[in-house]
Design a protein around this nucleic acid. Sequence first.
DNA 1: CACGATCATAGACAGAGTGTCCAGAAACGG
DNA 2: CCGTTTCTGGACACTCTGTCTATGATCGTG
Lengths: 201, 201
Amino acid sequence: MTVVEDRRSRRTRGALRDALVSLVLERGYAAVTVEDIVAAADVGRATFYTHFKDKEALYDHVVSSVLLDLKGRLAAVLAPEDAGFTGEPVAEVFRHATEQPDAYRMILRGEGDGRGLRAFEDAWSATAHETFTARVKAHAVRPRVDLQVLARAWVGEQMAVLLWWLDAPEPRPATDQVVETLVELSRRGRFWATGFDPDAR
Amino acid sequence: MTVVEDRRSRRTRGALRDALVSLVLERGYAAVTVEDIVAAADVGRATFYTHFKDKEALYDHVVSSVLLDLKGRLAAVLAPEDAGFTGEPVAEVFRHATEQPDAYRMILRGEGDGRGLRAFEDAWSATAHETFTARVKAHAVRPRVDLQVLARAWVGEQMAVLLWWLDAPEPRPATDQVVETLVELSRRGRFWATGFDPDAR
DNA sequence: CACGATCATAGACAGAGTGTCCAGAAACGG
DNA sequence: CCGTTTCTGGACACTCTGTCTATGATCGTG
């Protein structure tokens, strides 16, 4: 495959990706047909099936793209020591969501089936659980709640707020302010829940 | 419509309801056809369309049944003064979910599209926001975070934990213990966030 | 510029599922 | 037993799907 041909292929896939996302946001996943997608992307219907097996396959492609991108950026931000506690990761996710809000809205709404949503939830809460555990160990404190439950709750909280924020009518509340709120909640509620007081000297 | 005929009709609708829920949990909403549903409910295909316009209509029927039931029970539990803060409503929702876990799992997974899930979220967070506001006013304190965000976060947290708990493998963690955790999180994190300390005298 | 490789395309195809209709069977109350 | 209501199987046209084939478009290379 030559460079230009690869570029052509990429452009087609990108067009299909974008068409799916915007159509799904417009009418909902079930109401979007392959016909609609190829019409919006301005490609032939046969072409669709040379790139993706399914409407589902295209959906999965979008989700995994976003998730992969997010993971890379989170890995860069998460200093192993302070991971998950300072609210930095939250800010990073908000920043990422701002760059491709449509894809985020599609996924967080649980559009399609909930696969994208659950992939997000699982990946994120696993990370949260790890960092919670590490922090509790590092400070030799005794968590006052089940850390598994804590991680789920923490992630659920952030995702709910993120979706609410993305769906908010313009002018959308400032990112910093919303993130600040989440960080505050995390600091007090979570630190306390793990038995570690951030304000103690 | 006579009494018995009404009873016959109810039985049919109930069978369809149950069939939808169990099939959706088994294979996912999109993979369930009207054929499958009527086969599982042991009724004719034509009968389906005399009761519901659509597969979607049946889904909506299930969701609104559950939601209506829940609202009634919450209204009974929520003493206007302490509403949303003691963790009592959380316990009530868990109790309700225990009585019809399949329907809850279907809805909270965002199966179908996310309509059921969002209906839950909206109703619940609206209530939360109201009670938060009332409480803050009653104690003449100044909330340290946006109450809208707080409500979203609170509900997201509870729904995430509820789904996690419903989907947990047997033996499922005791309800009381999980609820206790949520209550603890709510008491400290939320009370603090609204500027009202429950432990102050 | 012409060749070969690769991608895009239109149109046709069978199959599955949908939603509607009807005439008749079944269940029920009076 | 009669009248009413619900349930039923079968037939219908329709939409969408996923596959296939033959043809056209695009590009790098020799």
